[in-house]
Structure formats: structure tokens, C-alpha cells
């Protein structure tokens, strides 16, 4: 592979072409939109409405103690003092739920969306017998991969950020009467959205590309790619059980590690998939 810089026109042409194909495929659209709608519209709607109408006075002493311990057990700092300054346990619980307990769900949206697009993007070229045309063209394989990565990264980020915007609007609209101020986003959200999610999306795409370049069909690629969801589910369980609270520092570290993994994966992918290897494995 040549050492010259990547060809921006070719990378962008491939990305644009793929994005256009996504916007024209109902099958992919529905899959991409359904999850963010459930997580960003329906879930916060139910969550905030239920919590607004909670009758804390009727809670058992054990439940109240558990809730108070959860907040009391937080590391001393801005979050803890902010929570303790809120007027009631109900306010504190709602604030915790919408800003912390729900965050791992926001990792599921990009992971699932990126998996869906990435599997379709690569295996789709093979199934439609167009990969041959790309490999016969005067482009570097590295540029082909970069174009494909961009074609998944951009729509995934748009969906994720769009979903978060919807979430913030729904939560604030419903919680404003109680708090008298906007409660989403916090600074932790900014780190999550701008640092952790891009890194998670990159790793998801690259793992999918790695798998897609080896498997035969779209379904197989999706099933294998689905394995990537598991660590996110584990994170969510940890978060919900209170065992792990994603602080900005922790999010920063995880994001950094994931970016490093992405870099290593990209190197592996371009090394393992030279033109003739890709052609002999994928074109018949």
C-alpha cells in the first residue's frame, strides 16, 4: 500500500454514495429510527411522568434508605452537593435517573445503528456484486475502507445527536414544572456525547468491517456484529445496580482506550485486506 496521503475526493465520494443508498432503503431507515424513538421519546416520557407522580411518602423505610445511600455514597463533589440541595428525594431520584442511570442506553443507540449500517455497507457491496467495480478502480484499499467508515460514522452520529436532542427536549419539557430549570444536559453528557460515543462508534464500525470482510452474507455479519452490544449491556446493568457510576474521568479514560483500539483495528484491517485478498475472498 502506498504511503501517500488519503485521497479526500475518493473517500468522500464513497461515503456520499453509501449515505445516499441508506436514505433510499426503507429497511435500513426503519431500523435506524425505531430505536432512537423508543429510547429518546417513549422512555423519557414514561420515566419522567412516572417519577413526577411518585408518592415517596408511601415508600418503605428500606427503599428510602437505599435511595438516600445511593446519593450519599456518591463521591463528594459538585454532583453530590447539587443533588443534596434539591428540594426532595423525588427531585433527586428523577435527576439521577435522567442524567445518570439512563446514560448507558445512549450507548446502545450508536452501537446498534452503526452495526446495522456497517454490516449493510460492506456485505452489501459484495451481495450486489459492486465490490468488483470498486476493486477494479484506481483507488487505494485504505481509501475504500475510510470511505466506508465515514459512511457509517456520519449517519450514526446524526441519529445519536438527533436522538439526544429529542431526549433533552422531552425531559426538560416534562420536568420543568418540577425543577423550574433545565436539568439535561450536564457536563458529563458533553463528555459522553463528544468523546465516548464517537470512540464507541468507531470501534463498532471497525469490528463490523473486520467481520464483514470475512463472512459470506449480511445476516451473518449482523449476527456477529451484534456481539459488540454485549459490553454495553454489561455497562448498563452495572450502572443500574449502582455498582458503577460513569464519572467524566472514567468516560474519558474508556473513550481514550477505545480510540486506541480503533487505531489498532484500522491498521489490522488495512494490512489483512489487500486488494487481491479481498477480491479472491469476496468476488466470485
Amino acid at each position: 500500500m502506498s504511503k501517500r496521503r488519503w485521497n479526500r475526493e475518493i473517500v468522500w465520494a464513497i461515503a456520499q454514495k453509501d449515505i445516499r443508498a441508506i436514505t433510499r432503503s426503507k429497511q435500513i431507515w426503519i431500523g435506524m429510527i425505531a430505536l432512537p424513538l423508543a429510547f429518546c421519546l417513549v422512555l423519557p416520557l414514561i420515566l419522567v411522568l412516572v417519577m413526577r407522580n411518585l408518592d415517596v411518602a408511601s415508600w418503605s423505610a428500606d427503599t428510602v434508605t437505599f435511595a438516600e445511600d445511593l446519593i450519599g455514597g456518591l463521591p463528594a463533589g459538585d454532583l453530590q452537593s447539587f443533588l443534596l440541595a434539591l428540594p426532595s428525594l423525588q427531585h433527586q431520584m428523577l435527576y439521577m435517573a435522567v442524567n445518570y442511570l439512563i446514560t448507558p442506553l445512549f450507548l446502545l443507540i450508536p452501537v446498534i445503528t452503526a452495526g446495522l449500517i456497517a454490516a449493510n455497507s460492506f456485505v452489501g457491496e459484495k451481495e450486489r456484486r459492486t465490490l468488483e467495480s470498486l476493486l477494479f478502480a484506481p483507488l487505494e484499499i485504505r481509501d475504500l475502507f475510510l470511505g466506508k467508515i465515514l459512511a457509517t460514522f456520519l449517519p450514526t452520529m446524526v441519529i445519536t445527536y438527533g436522538g439526544f436532542l429529542l431526549y433533552a427536549v422531552v425531559v426538560n419539557a416534562l420536568a420543568y414544572p418540577m425543577f423550574g430549570q433545565l436539568i439535561v444536559p450536564t457536563w458529563d453528557w458533553a463528555v459522553l456525547m463528544l468523546w465516548l460515543i464517537p470512540s464507541v462508534v468507531l470501534v463498532t464500525i471497525l469490528l463490523n468491517v473486520l467481520i464483514s470482510a470475512r463472512v459470506k452474507g449480511f445476516q451473518e455479519a449482523q449476527q456477529l456484529g451484534g456481539v459488540i452490544v454485549l459490553p454495553v449491556v454489561a455497562l448498563m446493568v452495572g450502572q443500574l445496580s449502582g455498582a458503577l457510576l460513569l464519572s467524566a474521568t472514567l468516560i474519558g479514560i474508556i473513550g481514550g482506550v477505545l480510540f486506541l483500539i480503533s487505531f489498532l483495528l484500522l491498521r489490522t484491517i488495512t494490512k489483512r485486506n489487500q486488494r487481491h485478498v479481498l477480491f479472491e475472498k469476496q468476488v466470485h
Binding site: K17, R20, A21, R24, S25, R128, R129, T130, E132, S133, F136
Partner: peptide, 11 residues
């Protein structure tokens, strides 16, 4: 020009 032409049908 390959036998399958290698075109994008959705475009």
C-alpha cells in the same frame, strides 16, 4: 466492463 457490469441498482 465486467460481465455483471457492477452498477448500483438503487442509484
Amino acid at each position: 466492463l465486467t460481465e455483471g457490469a457492477g452498477l448500483y441498482h438503487e442509484l
